Amino acid sequence: MLGLIGKKICMTSYFNELGYCIPCTVIKAGPCTVLQKKSIKKDGYSSIQLGYEEKKQKNTNKPLVGHFKKFNSSPKKRIFEFAGNFLKAPGDVIKVDLFQENDNVDIVGIAKGKGFQGVVKRHGFSGVGEKTHGQHNRSRAPGSIGAGSDPSRVFKGTRMAGRMGGKRITIKNLKILKIYLTRNLVLVKGAIPGPTNSYLLIKKTFFKNGNRNFE
């Protein structure tokens, strides 16, 4: 499934032809340079490796500098492989015209990290109860986490306090509302995980006989 590496710019509003206001996310998608093409015969699987955004050579480690020079490319900030056998060669540039308006895409991003949070914010708990009958500082407590005698342990997966956010999230079937070819911008309906200027993967979604197809 071919796609592009992009960057989240901001959120804004888009007014369609009927005058409805649609919240959307602005993404700078590409241009991405094909760095390497892998084959089943040589590498055991088929894919193409894309690079996004220029990077200074002094800030790139020597193994990566050698990798970029091998394929006659300048250092890139982000590298990602898209699985599949595509008619692309090293040095080709893939731009935002890969997509069309009204296409469906899957977008992968890293959610904002929120640090260590309690059960009220992390899982939506309502707390133990009211501050009556002698309760003290229990309004945001998790309550019981298991029996003491049997099983005498806490089950894995119990909803408790812990680190929140910072995970890789995929949002599926987002609709492309508008494409600006000259500026490499894509307007996607709805919200996308990650802070401003975070890197994203935009994957093209195909449907065959009503089912999702990634080939």
Rank of each mutant, 00 (worst) to 15 (best):
N137P: 02
K114L: 13
D150K: 15
Q135F: 15
P151C: 11
K121N: 04
Q117C: 10
F155W: 13
V120N: 05
K114C: 06
G166A: 05
G165K: 03
R140I: 11
L185V: 03
I171G: 02
L185Y: 07
F116W: 15
I107A: 05
G165M: 05
M160S: 08
S152D: 06
K114E: 14
G194E: 11
I110P: 03
K175E: 10
V120E: 00
T132L: 15
S152N: 15
G127Q: 08
K178T: 00
G124E: 08
T132V: 14
G157N: 10
G166K: 05
A141W: 03
R159W: 02
V186D: 00
Q117I: 08
V120F: 00
K178S: 01
Y180A: 03
M164A: 04
N173Q: 12
A147H: 07
G162P: 00
V128M: 03
V119R: 04
G113R: 07
K172V: 04
L187A: 01
G143A: 10
T158R: 12
G190P: 10
V154K: 12
N184E: 09
F125H: 11
Q135I: 11
V128Q: 05
A141K: 02
E130F: 11
H136A: 10
G190M: 08
S144H: 12
G124H: 10
R168N: 08
G165R: 09
P142C: 14
I171C: 09
K114D: 01
A191M: 12
V188R: 00
H136V: 14
F116E: 11
D150L: 14
G194C: 07
R183A: 06
K114Y: 10
K172H: 12
I171Y: 06
K131I: 11
A111V: 09
G194N: 10
Q135A: 15
T170P: 01
K121I: 04
Q117T: 13
P193Q: 10
K156P: 02
P193T: 12
R122H: 05
G162C: 01
H136Y: 14
G143R: 06
A111P: 05
G134I: 13
R183E: 14
V108Y: 08
N137S: 15
M164T: 00
N137C: 10
G124T: 13
G113Y: 13
K175H: 02
Y180N: 13
H133L: 12
V186F: 04
G166L: 07
K172R: 15
G157S: 00
S152H: 11
G165W: 04
P193G: 09
A111G: 15
S152P: 01
S144I: 11
I145C: 08
V128W: 00
K121Q: 07
G109Q: 11
I171P: 03
E130K: 15
R159I: 01
N184L: 06
V154G: 11
Q135D: 09
G143C: 08
R163L: 09
G166I: 08
R163P: 02
I176S: 01
L185R: 05
Y180S: 12
G143I: 09
G190F: 06
G162F: 04
